Amino acid sequence: MRIGIIGAGALGGTFAVLLARAGHDVEVTARGASLAAIREGGIGLTGGYGEAHERVAAGEVLTQRPELVLVCTKAQDAAAAIAANAGLVDGVPVVVVQNGLEGVATAERLLPASSCMGMLSIIAANYTEPGRVRVTTTAASYLGRGDGEPDDECRRVAAVLSSAVPVIAIAGFRGAQWTKLVVNMLNAVPAIVGRSVQDVVDDRRLRRVVAASMRETVRVAVARGVRFGSLQGLGDRRLRFFARLPLWLGQLLPYFMRVRMGDVPNLGSTQQSLRRGQRTEIDYLNGAVVREAELAGMDAPVNRALTALVHEVEQAGASLPAERVVSAVRA
C-alpha cells in the first residue's frame, strides 16, 4: 500500500521504517536537517523493534497521492502540515497519531472529503539525531474514532498497520484520548528539570508533582462527563478510584508506569522538542487540562503551573532545578 507519513520525527520515523520493512511504499515529510539526513541516508531504527534501516521518499510535502495517510506531527504543527498537503490527500483516509484531544477534529476541518481516524501510540522513542530513532519502549497502538464501537474501516486500517506493528481498533476512542492524556502527564516535569522520566519518578518530591497533575487531569475529565477508555491497563473504574486517593497513595500510579517503562532512559516527547530547540506541545497536554477545567467551571493550578514552567524553559533554553517545580506546584 502507498502510505504517506506527515512528520517523520520519533513516531513518524518509527512507523516509516516498520511499514517500509513490511513491504509498503512509504513517503514521508520532514524539514531542515531531518529532511536532508533522510534524503541522504534514509531512516535508521534501533531499540525495541530491532535494528532496521530503510530508504524512503522524503520531501517538505508529499508528492504522490497515497492510499493512506498518517499525521505524526506535534499537535501545534498539525494544522499547518495538514493544510500544506491538503490538495493531494483530501479524500484519502487519514490517521492522526498525536497527543492531546484536538487532532482528529483538526484533520476533519481541513480535509472535509477524508475519513479521519485517531491513533494513540504508547511507543516511547527518542529522536535526537536527524534520521535516527531509538525505540525505548514497544507497545501496541490503539485506533478508533468517536464514542462507539470501531467501524469496518477502522478495523481494516488497523489490520493494514498491524502488518508492521501491533495496532488495535478500539471502542470509545474519545475516552481513550483522555486516558492517554493522563499518561502524557509524565512529560512536563522531565522536560522542566532536564532528566529522564525514570529519574523524575524515582525522585519522591517530583513523583508527587507528577501524581498531582495526573489526579487533577482525571478530576477535570470526570467533571466534563468523560468515560475513560481502556489503555495499557488503565480504564474508567481504575482512574476514578485513583482520583479519590490521597496524593501519597496516588503516587503509585506514576511509579507503576515507570516500572512498565523499563530502565532505558525515556526523555519524553516534550523534552526531546526542547533539546532540538523546537516549540513544545505543552499547550495541548497540560494546557489542554487547564482549558477543559475552565469549561467545567474549575481551576487546574497544578497543570497551569507546569505549563508555565515549560514555557519558561522554552524561552530560557535551559532546564530548571527541581526545587522550582516543587515550590511552584504546592500539591
Rank of each mutant, 00 (worst) to 15 (best):
T136N: 09
T136S: 14
A140V: 02
S141E: 08
S141T: 07
S141I: 05
Y142G: 05
G144L: 11
G146A: 06
G146E: 07
D147M: 08
G148V: 11
G148H: 10
E149G: 11
P150A: 08
P150I: 12
P150C: 10
C154E: 15
C154K: 13
C154Q: 15
R156K: 09
R156S: 13
V157W: 07
V157D: 13
A158G: 05
A158L: 11
V160F: 05
S162Q: 08
A164V: 08
V165C: 12
P166H: 02
V167P: 01
V167E: 04
I168E: 14
A169F: 03
I170H: 00
A171L: 08
A171I: 10
R174N: 13
G175I: 10
G175D: 10
A176L: 12
A176E: 08
W178G: 08
K180V: 09
L181Q: 09
L181C: 11
V182H: 07
N184Q: 07
M185E: 13
L186R: 06
L186N: 13
N187F: 03
N187V: 01
N187C: 05
N187G: 02
A188W: 06
A188P: 00
V189G: 00
P190R: 00
A191H: 01
A191Y: 00
A191L: 04
I192K: 03
S196K: 04
S196M: 00
V197Y: 05
D199F: 03
D199I: 00
D203I: 00
R204E: 04
R204D: 01
R204T: 03
L206G: 03
L206W: 03
V209E: 02
A211P: 02
A212Y: 01
S213P: 06
R215I: 12
E216L: 06
V218A: 11
V220C: 03
V220M: 03
V222M: 05
R224P: 05
G225K: 10
V226H: 02
G229H: 03
L231C: 02
L231Y: 04
Q232S: 13
G233K: 13
L234N: 11
L234Q: 15
L234F: 10
L234A: 10
G235P: 14
D236H: 15
R237K: 15
R237E: 15
R237G: 15
R237N: 14
L239H: 13
R240D: 06
R240P: 08
F241W: 15
F241M: 15
F242P: 02
A243K: 12
R244S: 12
P246G: 02
P246M: 01
W248D: 12
W248R: 11
W248K: 09
G250P: 01
Q251D: 07
L253H: 08
P254A: 01
P254I: 01
Y255S: 10
F256K: 15
F256Y: 15
M257P: 10
M257S: 09
R258Y: 04
R258T: 09
V259A: 12
V259I: 15
G262P: 05
D263P: 06
D263W: 12
P265N: 10
N266E: 13
T270F: 07
Q271H: 14
L274Q: 05
R275M: 08
R276S: 06
G277K: 04
Q278S: 12
R279S: 10
R279G: 03
T280F: 02
